[in-house]
Each structure stands twice: as C-alpha cells, then as structure tokens.
Write a protein that binds this DNA or RNA. Structure first.
Length: 488
RNA sequence: CGGGGAGUAGCGCAGUCCGGUAGCGCAUUCGCUUUGGGAGCGAAGGGUCGCAGGUUCAAAUCCUGUCUCCCCGACCA
C-alpha cells in the first residue's frame, strides 16, 4: 500500500497534518479552528496531565475550578491585560434560541444585560474571588491550579499548536511578598523544564521574554522554548510574575504582620495541548508519531504471527505469560490479536501511532524460546530470549526515553549558533535554529529585526553569564546575547 | 481579515472547461486461499457531489451567497 505520510523533507506542514491524522490524535471539527481530540490523543494528554498534576501537588498546589464565563467588566479592570486579549475574545450576548420555520434563531428578547466573555485566561475571574479569600498574611500564600479549556479567537489555526479552543492548566498564586512570588514563578518554570525534559524528552531553553513578547499584565514572563525538527522554535510553557497588577485592579489587600494593608503579589503559569504539537515535532519521523515511553498510553504492543489456528493458539499460549510478566512491572502492554489485519499492516499502524516498543512472536520464536523486539525510535529489530524479558524491556524503555532526549538535545545544540553581525544573523536565521546575538534591549530594534528577518527574540536565557558586546543592528552596548529564532 | 488552492463513499482522488442523473483505488461485509513489513481472487454494501439559493426540460458541472480545510501574509500566546 502507498505511504500515507508525506516525507518531512518534502512538506513539513503536510507531514505534521499526516502524522496527526494517521496517529489518530485529532481531527478537524465543523467549527473553524476547533479540533476533536480523539481517544489516542486524549490518552496522551491524560498522561501529560497526570505527571504535571502530580508535580503541581508536590509543590504545594491544589486544584480548583472557576467559571468559563467572565463578566465583560472584569476584563476591563487591568488595562494591559484587556489590551492583550481584547482582539481575541468570544462574547456571549444572548441566552436562548427560539424555534422558527426551518430551525432556530437567537431570541432577541434574551439579550444579556452584561455580556459574558468566554475565558481566554482566568486571571480576572480568579482575582475577583481572591479578594474575598484574602484578608490577612495568614491567608497567604494561595496556591491554586485549574485544568480547563479556554478560547482565543485566532485568525490562523493549526491542530494542537494554535486552536481557538484548547485545553490547558493555569496556575494562579497569591503571595505576601515580591520575593516569594518571584520564587514561585521560577519554581514553576523549573517544573515545566523538568516535565519537558524528563517526560517529553524535549530539551528546552529557559529564559525571560522581552517586553514585547511578555504576557499582557505581567511584569516578567518566564518561558521554556523548544526547537522543532524544522528549525522553528516553539514556546512550550510560560510562568508569569504579575507583580501587584491584578491585586491593584481587583483591590486585593492583606493586613501584614506589621499591621499595614498591602497589595498581594501574584503569579500565573500554564501549559496547554500545544505541548502535544511540540512532542510530535520533536521526535516523530516519516513513519509517523514517536512517543517517549514515559508518556506513551501503550508502551509495548505484541503482534502474534501465525498461519494456522494451531499456530495461533501455540503463539498466544507462549505470549500470555510473557505479557503478564511485563504487565507486572507496571508497563502498559497490549496484545494485538485482531484477525483481520496482517502482521505487516499492524507493524505499520503501530509505528504510525508511535508505540515505543513492539514485540512480534511467531512459531519460530515459540520453538526457540525467543521473541522479536522492534524499537520505534530507531526502527532497530533484535531477536532476544524470552527469559528475563520483563526486566529487559523495562530497562530498554528507559534507554529509549534517555536516547530520545539525547538525540533531541544534540540536534538542538547543533542548530544553536552565534551571530556577530547583522549580515551573519540574516544568513544564519535562514537556515533555521536558535541564534544567539547581541541586542540593545529596545523594542524598536526587536521590531526591526522581526520585520526584516521574521525572527523574534525567543527569550533572554536565564543563568547566562554577562557577555558584553554590541547590538548587531544599532551597535549600542548589550550586556548579553539573547536567543533568536523564527517561531510557531 | 487579505491573496492563492481545495471540499465528490470512512480515507485518497477522477469527473466540472463542453450540463444528460456519479466513478476509481484503498477501507468495510461475505466466501475461499493467505499471515515473520501495509496479502490474492470472487461477490456485495455504501454518496441528497460542503451547505443554501438561482438559471435550465435537466446541475457534481453554469451563476450568487455561505461554511470548513490547506499554503502565504497581517494579527497573536
């Protein structure tokens, strides 16, 4: 049969769409810019959620849930914030329909007194609650996360990477001091970095955003930036230090130990289903999706091979204790005993779906006490004895996890360069990847670079040593190099 | 939101220029043969041609509107 996935070298965008379709992660819905997340895609998201949720709870956070709808007046309370989101808000204006000939129409009688905004993010509705929850320093900190959907009316969408409605988590915390809030912002950035690297096997650069890329209403936006296979950067997560902006907008004060009434300090942080897009574009190949073992809904699939019914029962009988021993290790393993597909077809299907390890067992293996192992990441096959297989695959899955990260990290590092002049920068940015260059720190220069090269400042990396130089555009003094790339 | 392309069976497409009542491959169902990298033969089922109007004796085909997707741009977490 013909290949169903376009080669990456031929058309990277089409390849991405093909992988999403063939791996059955998601599909387009009848609603523009919205997607249907299919069971396979949702299982992946559930695994991501599970680990992130655990990490949030380990760092002292609790889950809660706030409304989908936000009164319009709430959004206008914080000036920067409104400005940032005003152009992409869905607005609910009416509350009911009425039947008319041939269908239904909006009942003009049901117009709302105050329109409701479908949340693009929940700072405002949450801070309205926090005002009531916070009186004393003893009420602080408040460390809350919510798992929710949000809507941003995007002009141009791509499955997972940018959809009008997406799933995410948003953490919203309140603190007594600036230091505590900054510490929280950095702590959660580190949680994201750890998750990206240790679970998604996706190396990231941590840093802070330039003023123009900053979250609307934040004093500082920290981020993790990843590099995709095609050389474009992807913002994979953000953690914002909100200062006292929302506390002032919503009048949230507490009485401190010294008896003074003070505004609360805030943070917010989030990652979304966009991470799935990042996962796809970090590891997958021309055969389809590649999922790191720690996040794979199914880690191992077993494909039995047989001609006759006798062979089938012999193979299945042989496979059963093997599968059981692997399952006892806490590994997610599935037997694909469907009769209506041939082994070759199953191999291709499971590869497209990114299952990390495949075990094939046929009459030959039954006879010799072996089985065939195939790695999804390297496509390597090997014949191994079935004795001690559970320990073997347990280690192998960890090896795959590690090697996926190493491979991605090597690729990112090899595509990260330094440019010392604007000419060199223009030349290098064409080739894709991360470029470190000196920048004078002004939005004007950043804008000029963006207009002329389509590259943006992805971040000002954290923990980088001061390295004074001259801005590649203006020649003005620069304290350190910043990270540029073309981005999704 | 601007420019370009597309929407016909579950998926991929032909048919549209030149109007005559819909076809191919894969998938599905049944039968037989098959099964270590996307099986073969035979038979069967499945589509108000994105949707809504219009022109016409007759519309997938022509006209108008509209929705959705893809690429580029503008905008943007």
């Amino acid at each position: 049969m013909a290949k169903k996935i376009t080669d990456r070298s031929k058309d990277y965008s089409q390849w991405y769409l093909d992988v999403v379709r063939e791996a059955e992660l998601a599909e387009h819905s009848p609603v523009r810019g919205c997607m249907v997340v299919r069971p396979t895609g949702y299982a992946l998201w559930e695994n991501m959620k599970k680990e992130l949720d655990r990490m949030f709870k380990e760092t002292g956070h609790e889950n809660a849930y706030f409304p989908l709808f936000i009164p319009k007046s709430f959004l206008s309370k914080e000036a920067q914030h409104v400005e940032g989101f005003a152009k992409e808000c869905a607005v609910v204006t009416h509350s009911r329909l009425k039947s008319v000939e041939g269908g239904v129409e909006v009942d003009p009688e049901s117009k709302l007194d105050e329109e409701l905004i479908v949340r693009p993010t929940s700072e405002t509705i949450i801070w309205d609650s926090y005002r009531n929850w916070i009186q004393s320093y003893r009420d602080l900190p408040i460390l809350i996360n919510q798992w929710a959907n949000v809507v941003r009316w995007e002009m141009r969408t791509r499955l997972f990477l940018r959809t009008m409605e997406f799933l995410w988590q948003e953490g919203h915390t309140a603190h007594a001091t600036r230091e505590e809030a900054v510490e929280e912002t950095e702590r959660m950035l580190e949680v994201y970095r750890t998750f990206a690297e240790e679970y998604m096997a996706m190396p990231v650069i941590t840093g802070v955003k330039s003023e123009s890329e900053r979250f609307a209403g934040a004093e500082e936006t920290y981020c993790i930036e990843a590099l995709m296979q095609d050389g474009k950067a992807l913002q994979a997560g953000t953690s914002h230090f909100l200062g006292q902006n929302f506390a002032k907008a919503f009048d949230v004060k507490f009485q401190d130990q010294d008896g003074e009434h003070k505004y609360v300090w805030a943070t917010s942080w989030g990652v979304s289903t966009r991470l799935i897009g990042g996962l796809i574009m970090t590891h997958s190949d021309d055969n389809g999706l590649v999922i790191p073992p720690r996040l794979a809904p199914t880690q191992i699939v077993v494909v039995p091979i047989y001609r006759s019914d006798e062979q089938k029962s012999a193979v299945l009988e042989y496979a059963e204790p093997i599968i059981e021993s692997i399952r006892e290790k806490g590994i997610s393993i599935k037997l694909d005993d469907r009769d209506n597909f041939k082994p070759g077809w199953k191999f291709a299907e499971h590869e497209a779906k990114g299952i990390p390890l495949r075990i094939a067992i046929g009459p030959r293996d039954v006879e010799n006490g072996n089985l065939e192992l195939a790695r999804r990441d390297t496509l390597e096959k090997s014949i191994v004895p079935s004795t001690g297989i559970a320990e073997y695959v347990d280690e192998l899955l960890e090896t795959i996890q590690k090697e996926l990260f190493e491979t991605a990290k090597d690729r990112m590092e090899s595509r990260t360069r330094v440019a010392n002049s604007y000419d060199e920068f223009r030349e290098e940015i064409e080739k894709g990847g991360f470029i470190y260059a000196h920048w004078d720190g002004t939005p004007e220069t950043e804008e000029k670079i963006k207009e002329e090269t389509k590259a943006t400042i992805r971040c000002i990396p954290l923990n980088s040593e001061p390295d004074p130089g001259e801005c590649i555009v203006t020649g003005k003094r620069s304290e350190r190099r910043v990270l540029f790339a073309r981005a999704y």
